[in-house]
Design a protein around this nucleic acid. Structure first.
Lengths: 229, 229
DNA sequence: CCAATAGTGTCTGTGAGACAGTATGTC
DNA sequence: GACATACTGTCTCACAGACACTATTGG
């Protein structure tokens, strides 16, 4: 009871849009709300920021609590801040949304609280009524990812460290929701400076001709960019 | 004294990166701080958000207080949120930065408080030591603008409603800090779908051949985009 | 007519899109 | 050898960059 104020306080939160590709579907992690408001509805994982905690640190903390995955190999970036006065009926909550992208993120067990958590295809996620303004936040995250596939190496965060050309193509096709020509795609990737490089190995064991394994070659900005459609 | 808490409160603020082109220089509006901390240093205009006020509304309010310019004809968008715990030595302040872009923004009189306010070329602004983390915020705003010139109609916000091709070219040259070929530039602008259209009028009174006046033709996304060098 | 500024046309190389056939593995 | 999958080569068209000349005004 050390602090007093003549005004009601702001609460500052982070919400996470965690995206991955699971079973060929572009998917987002949602948690089922146990209590009011929006009990039983699905929502983004998130939580309040500590008074001495950096926003990005809070986002990392929530990411690890929710998925068990550390900062390594998961891309995290700030998305936008949502602060409508009525977005949470209980308090004035200003929430900074973070975008996380990872490859092969694990199946989620029931969260630390008793409520459920699971991966949803993004199209199903935005179609159902999410809690709070989380539909808007998911849409912002999805659009950010679709856009960044064009001019950054973000696509590589959806695949393991070593991957094949068809797997990389599938990332673009799944996230953009289009079909791409494998000949033009491979040529485009190969001609983009420092995007991918050969490892010399191949992925054996499947049917058909083994695909050569590639890895990131260091570029963070693609030049020339990949173009949507 | 109605509210009590066992924790110190968050303060939520907005800071504005207001950009325009003045006297041929890509410029940002800064205010001189009257009091501690950072007394005498230059800082971005901004202020605290009301407990029932939307973030964007707070940004509009600060914009109008600072420049006297209303929402009309000034582009305003959220930039990013800065929330390092030590960014303000007094309190925990989380600040959402907004980016404003306008044409011919007025000279600023001394602000409502006694301190000074003036336009700075962005290169000079980031070179001097700005208060708080405002250098980082200015750089984020500048990079956002440089980037958005490529694929959006943002360049049109730097010129009046009617403008000429050389004026539009000067926007790109000034913001990007490059020189462009007028023949290639005009061709590129003309071939970009619904970017600009002729008004039929011309700007008379100057020396040399009068330039034809253009106006926006409705596109918000440029296709194909303008490319930075 | 001279100075100043606006405006246009061509050539060339590169990259994107459309498209079909060959290579290499498993069963 | 049949099947499945990975991989590659060519043609065409559109656009970007380099570049020099013509047009229209004021003084």
């Amino acid at each position: 009871m050390a602090y007093t104020s003549e005004y009601p306080p702001f609460y500052v939160a982070v919400d996470l849009v965690i995206l991955t590709i699971r079973d060929g579907a572009f998917s987002v992690l949602l948690v089922e709300r146990g209590g009011e408001p929006f009990a039983g509805r699905w929502a983004l994982p998130g939580g309040f920021v500590g008074i001495d905690e950096d926003l990005a640190d809070a986002a990392y903390r929530e990411l690890e609590e929710e998925t068990g995955v550390g900062a390594t190999s998961v891309h995290l970036e700030q998305l936008a801040t949502f602060g409508r006065p009525d977005r949470d009926p209980r308090h004035r909550v200003v929430s900074t949304a973070y975008l996380a992208v990872g490859a092969d993120l694990p199946e989620v067990r029931g969260g630390s609280d008793a409520s459920d958590a699971r991966w949803w295809p993004v199209s199903d996620a935005v179609r159902q009524g999410l809690a709070f303004d989380h539909r808007e936040i998911v849409e912002a995250g999805v659009e950010r990812v679709r856009s960044k596939l064009e001019y950054s190496d973000l696509a590589l965060r959806f695949v393991p460290r070593q991957f094949t050309m068809p797997e990389l193509q599938a990332v673009y096709e799944t996230v953009w929701g289009v079909e791409l020509d494998p000949r033009n795609f491979a040529r485009k990737v190969a001609r983009t400076e420092r995007f991918v490089q050969e490892t010399g190995e191949a992925r054996r064991g499947g049917r058909g001709r083994p695909a050569r394994l590639l890895e990131a070659a260091g570029a963070t900005e693609l030049m020339p960019p990949m173009r949507r459609e």
